[in-house]
Write a protein that binds this DNA or RNA. Sequence first.
RNA 1: CGGGAUGUGGCGCAGCUUGGUAGCGCACCUCGCUUGGGACGAGGGGGUCGCACGUUCGAAUCGUGUCAUCCCGACCA
Length: 577
Amino acid sequence: MKMSKLFVQTLREFPSDAEVVSHKMLVRAGFIRKLTSGVYNYLPLMWRVLKKVENITREEMDKAGAQELLMPFVQPKELWEESGRWEVYGRELMRLRDRHDREMCLGPTHEEIITYIAREGLKSYKQLPVNLYQIQSKFRDEVRPRFGLLRGREFIMKDAYSFSTSQEELDAEYENMAQAYRNIFNRCGLPTKMVQSDSGAIGGNVSHEFMVITDTDAGENDVFYCECDYSANSNHAISKLPQATVDGAECGLTEKKVIDTPNTKTIEELANFLNVPQSVICKCLVYIADKKPVLAYIRGDKQVEETKLMNALGAIDIRIASSEEIEELMANNGFSAKAGFISAIGMKDIKIIADETVKDMKNFVVGVNENDKHMVAANLDDIQVKEFADIRLVEAGELCPECGKPLKVTRGIEVGNIFQLGTKYSEPMNAVYLDKDGKAKPYIMGCYGIGISRTAAAAVEAHHDENGIKWPVAIAPYHVIVVPVSTKDETQMKVAEDIYNKLLEQGIEVVLDDRNERPGVKFKDAELIGFPFRITVGKTIENGNVELVTRATLEKEEMAPETAVTEVIARINAQLK
RNA sequence: CGGGAUGUGGCGCAGCUUGGUAGCGCACCUCGCUUGGGACGAGGGGGUCGCACGUUCGAAUCGUGUCAUCCCGACCA
């Protein structure tokens, strides 16, 4: 490819609407352009990268025994009603109507469709297990698209679905996919961590996410990990507390009584007023779970992890109550307490749940539904809790549930995940096969996703410097750029063209920068776009040499043109292994 | 959805307070010159100032409404 004909427009400045580095770089280097919020045009350079990520994914999936197919982007409402998700999925599902007023949606994922395909085509245990996948655009009408390709509304995803006859078979396929994923991300030049995670709205039991570890805002997940193998998304992480048992008696709270605590709306204010640590306060939060209020107790120095709470309640939607909702709830129970003074004491017909660590609290401080008052030296019997669950957000420094060492935290970009779905879809959708004994049984399913476009963006997050992108060879749009410093210099042009042609003959993806630009422009563009190797033909040609520049390190090496050709081919092939 | 901000050629911005019919840098086209780190000179093309309504002799500028986009919080590949 001649640079003069390559469809690319690099920008002198970063776009003003981009926040994270992958977004800035990809726009500035001419890979993508926004069409509308969360929706991007993939320009030729980007498309080459995406096709490479796709192909690596495809090769590894095929090698793992999965079969590729392609399902429609448009899906009928009826199947979504069968699974129950037409109601549940909410506004993230892009809904539309056809000319006959039939309701449809744009696929955010394809469990319904694949389950339909399976029940039509997989009637016998003899056909199982099977794993089907596709690579396709998905549409999710995100509340807040952001970070360019990292959180778009339309994005490219590889989604795979497995159908098994037993849990053992599913376990085997799950591990098979986990290994395929490690291969895929390694080949893409992306180090990932496989972490335990919540299975969320898609449902199921066991699930893991593949995270690209980063220390920037682009990592939207908190990952807790230990020096042993344990690691988990914050929505799923568990821990042991260094000091699980707290007793208010140790700081003077020995006699149970209700006392005045004026203007102590926050835990901090209350702890300061009483001169006790926050851990001896039992705080009570009001949540709205599926439109109904719920009271959640947790130790004062800890936070509620809402996904855990949601799962503990079996709810599909949860949020903290507004002050108006709290006021209404209190009024219905004959109280006027505001947030900060609430408790379950005297509340009627309301779900009450407490974090497990509350069990280990003694002689604690708690609200009594009366403003400016708290009970001190209270105990479990006083707060009417019957149900306990782990609803606590883990913090760094708490102890690993497996080995007891302190947990660390970092941020991660989720590029892939694997789920054990079980019969979550096959059962309601009546998707069954006939077993050996002739009995109809629902498939035991798994699903496995990779964000293709997100993976490409995550690669930029992981590999860049202030000059631009440093693409790993395996997913770079081109491997090499050959830069004659002056296109007017016949010797330089001849050598450059010769190198270019030799590389082309060897199947190397190479660009010749034949533009009549000054060298600075060409070097800046080469580094911004991120060609893994650059061969500069310039002044050193007087000594019969060219320069081989490695993008990752910007290291320059002078060598003869023929050497540069064989050397660059060798290095590319070494990295493509 | 709540909170904050912004909409002016492809990109980055000024002009708006104090209304008078649009400007700068980059990019693009032509010519010259230049060629080891985003040169220079001359000439040129491109914008109903997000949209609608209103105020006014006159609106990018003032008012109302609306749409879009971005940033901060709860969801997900």
